[in-house]
C-alpha cells in the first residue's frame, strides 16, 4: 500500500524524455525497483517443466482438431471436393499415361495433394480470425506459449490433411480400382505431406498478414493458383516446356510429385528436396517475422 498519495508534475513536455536507445532493463535506476524476495518464490509450483509444456501443447492440438472437425464447411472442401474432382478427372482409357503413371493413379495423387493442401492452408484463416477477435492474446495468458500456438496450428493442419489423403486413396480403389501396397500408400501419403511443409509456413504467414474479412478472397485465389502451379488442374506433363520448368521451381508442384514418385517406385529426389527446403526457409522466415511483429506490438 502506498502510505501518502503522491502527485507528479503535470507540466507538459517535462524532462522525462524517453531515450529511444535505452536498454530494456532500466529498472535498477528506479528507486522503487526493489525486487525483494526470491524470483522463483510464490504460492504455486511453476508448472513450466518440459513435460508440462508438452502436455499443454498436446491438449491444445487435440482441442483444435476437435473444433475444426465440427466445422462442416471445411470438411466439404477438404474431403468431399477432392473425391468429386477425382471422380470427374480420372476417367481415361486403359493405355493413357501421364508421365510414368496411368491416369487414375496420377489424378488420385493430385487430388489427395489438393485436399491436403486445403487442410494445411486452413490454418491461415484460423489464425487470422483468432487474431481479429484477440483470441490469441487470451491464449497467451495460459501456459501455451506463442511458438506452441503457431506450431499447433501447423500440426492441426497436417493432422487434418491425412483425412483427404486417405479418403482419395479409398476412392481411387473403389472408383477406379487403384490398389497399392501398404508401404506405397504410406510412402505416397507421407511424401505428399512432406511436400506441403513450405505451404504450412506460407499459411502461418498469411494468417498474420491478412485480415479475416479478406481471407476468403485471398485464399480462394491462392488455392486456385497453387493448384494450377502444382499441376493439379492440368498435369504438368501437358504444360509447355518453359512453363513446366517454372512450375518445378515452385513448392506446390513437389507435393504431388513426391507422391507420384513413390508410386513410380522412386522418391522425390534431391532437386525436389532442395526446392522444398529453400521455400521452407524463405516462407518460414517471413512467417516468423510476421508472427514476431504481432507478438511484440499488438
Amino acid at each position: 500500500m502506498t502510505g501518502n498519495p503522491t502527485i507528479a508534475s503535470t507540466t507538459a513536455g517535462s524532462s522525462m524524455a524517453a531515450d529511444p536507445t535505452a536498454a530494456s532493463a532500466t529498472a535498477a535506476s528506479t528507486p522503487a525497483a526493489t525486487f525483494a524476495g526470491p524470483l522463483t518464490g510464490g504460492t504455486r509450483a511453476g508448472g513450466n517443466g518440459t513435460a508440462d509444456a508438452v502436455l499443454t501443447y498436446v491438449r491444445y492440438v487435440r482441442s483444435e482438431i476437435t473444433r475444426v472437425w465440427r466445422n462442416t464447411r471445411l470438411l466439404i472442401f477438404t474431403l468431399l471436393l477432392p473425391i468429386i474432382l477425382f471422380g470427374a478427372f480420372s476417367a481415361g482409357s486403359e493405355g493413357d499415361r501421364l508421365g510414368d503413371l496411368a491416369v487414375a493413379p496420377y489424378i488420385m495423387i493430385s487430388m489427395a495433394s489438393f485436399g491436403a493442401m486445403n487442410a494445411v492452408l486452413g490454418s491461415a484463416g484460423r489464425i487470422a480470425t483468432e487474431r481479429s477477435i484477440g483470441w490469441n492474446r487470451q491464449l497467451r495468458l495460459t501456459a501455451l506459449t506463442g511458438p506452441q500456438y503457431v506450431l499447433a496450428k501447423a500440426t492441426t493442419g497436417f493432422t487434418l490433411a491425412v483425412l483427404p489423403i486417405v479418403a482419395v486413396f479409398v476412392a481411387g480403389d473403389a472408383m477406379r480400382g487403384v490398389r497399392l501396397s501398404a508401404g506405397t500408400y504410406l510412402g505416397a501419403g507421407a511424401s505428399i505431406l512432406l511436400g506441403l511443409v513450405p505451404l504450412a509456413a506460407f499459411a502461418i504467414w498469411l494468417g498474420y498478414l491478412v485480415r479475416p474479412e479478406n481471407m476468403q478472397a485471398i485464399t480462394g485465389g491462392v488455392f486456385s493458383l497453387l493448384a494450377l502451379a502444382g499441376g493439379i488442374w492440368v498435369p504438368v506433363e501437358n504444360f509447355p516446356g518453359w512453363l513446366a520448368d517454372v512450375v518445378k521451381l515452385l513448392p506446390m508442384y513437389w507435393s504431388a510429385q513426391a507422391g507420384r514418385a513413390v508410386l513410380a517406385g522412386g522418391w522425390i529426389g534431391g532437386r525436389g528436396l532442395v526446392t522444398l527446403a529453400v521455400w521452407t526457409v524463405v516462407l518460414g522466415a517471413a512467417a516468423g517475422r510476421a508472427y514476431l511483429r504481432d507478438q511484440l506490438r499488438t
Binding site: 535505452a22 530494456s24 529498472a27
Partner: peptide
C-alpha cells in the same frame, strides 16, 4: 502481451 521499449 506487448514488449516495453524499456522498463521491467
Amino acid at each position: 502481451l506487448t514488449r516495453p521499449d524499456s522498463g521491467e
